[in-house]
Design a binder for these strands. Structure first.
Lengths: 193, 193
DNA sequence: GCCATACTATGGTGATCACCATAGATACGT
DNA sequence: ACGTATCTATGGTGATCACCATAGTATGGC
């Protein structure tokens, strides 16, 4: 039952990377196998359901990592809505700069290719967004926001984050994150309504 | 010099529709021709540079239409930053509901497939976003916003709009637009800083 | 030593991809 | 009516797509 090679894990990691850069449809199995160094012969041994299964596991990994990042930021800024918002924007911006603006959000890429996705995959993408929003809403609740305001602010923040990624990739500068941080911190996440 | 058929125009219109629903890579030429009813034989007569040229003309059409919508809303709400913002969100939300949440933003879809795009196409996408942002910023300036605030608010609004589209497609409800409208109207576009 | 499990190599399937060469049809101005 | 420009049909190119059948190797427990 124990794994003997890391070919499987490498394939998933490479899939995450390429799906983020190129999208789901634009990324072929051959490219994933080549770039990961995983052998072509054993792909359907590791992933009997093929590309779909690989994508499912890729998004699971991505969502998990993203939630962890959000939880860390939340823990670092307990009770501080402004600091939380600011740090989310700066963290996402830093990620983009580090990758030279090549990486998009895997959930967003898949969400914009819904026509190519089966139900199971769609569900996972939706769940990833819901979970992200929930973590953020929980933080705002911990800052004394009312239920409704915490939820709508969190939803707005997630949407803004996704949109910012798209814009930043095009402009190849983190300026949009700073603009959003300014606007949001001063107006959205203000401690008083 | 005068056109004799509408095959060209129909191909472009269908390309816009399919690129918005499925994305650029996922949409094949054959599907575009089939669904538009345009004859396959004359595709490279109308578009000598192939799929790339078709995409260029598709995005030109899309951007033009989007700018027109924004200008109309701007004219309808002169001097009213709150009303402007509110109406933008409600218009975009209504569009999505009308299409049963099938349509994404063409610029956003292309921006998330940058790896598959040549320089010319990338430039047009970037220009589309820049122009949208400018129209919005101009409106805010007309509401008495300072230059810097008008620009950053406009950029934030565009990003939020794009992100909202992604989320709405997944959730199949316009709730995210309402959340953003609430948060934005109350905090972003407030007449005083 | 033996066998089951884990893994890989090889060589293909048919389908679809964007693209194009050649030829034929249609319609307009003059 | 003749020539030219606009448009379309046909049949194909090689490349790549996801996927798979078959066979083989490696490695562990017993």
């Amino acid at each position: 039952m124990t794994r003997k090679t890391d070919a499987r894990a490498r394939a998933i990691a490479t899939a995450v990377r390429l799906f983020r850069i190129q999208g789901y449809t634009a990324t072929g199995l051959t490219q994933i196998l080549e770039e990961s160094g995983a052998p072509k012969g054993s792909f359907y041994f590791h992933f009997p359901r093929g590309k779909t299964q690989l994508a499912e596991e890729a998004i699971d990994h991505y969502v998990e990592a993203r939630i962890a990042v959000l939880r860390n930021i939340s823990a670092d800024t307990t009770g501080d809505a402004l600091g939380f918002t600011r740090q989310i924007f700066s963290t996402f911006a830093a990620e983009m700069v580090a990758s030279d603006f090549q990486y998009g959000c895997l959930m967003q890429n898949l969400a914009n290719e819904l026509a190519a996705l089966d139900f199971e995959l769609t569900k996972r993408v939706a769940h990833g967004f819901a979970e992200s929003t929930e973590v953020i809403a929980d933080h705002f609740k911990g800052c004394g926001f009312g239920l409704a305001r915490a939820s709508s602010t969190a939803a707005a923040l997630v949407a803004a984050l996704e949109g910012a990624r798209t814009i930043a990739r095009l402009e190849r500068t983190p300026a949009i994150f700073e603009a959003l941080a300014d606007v949001s911190v001063q107006r959205w996440a203000a401690p008083k309504a």
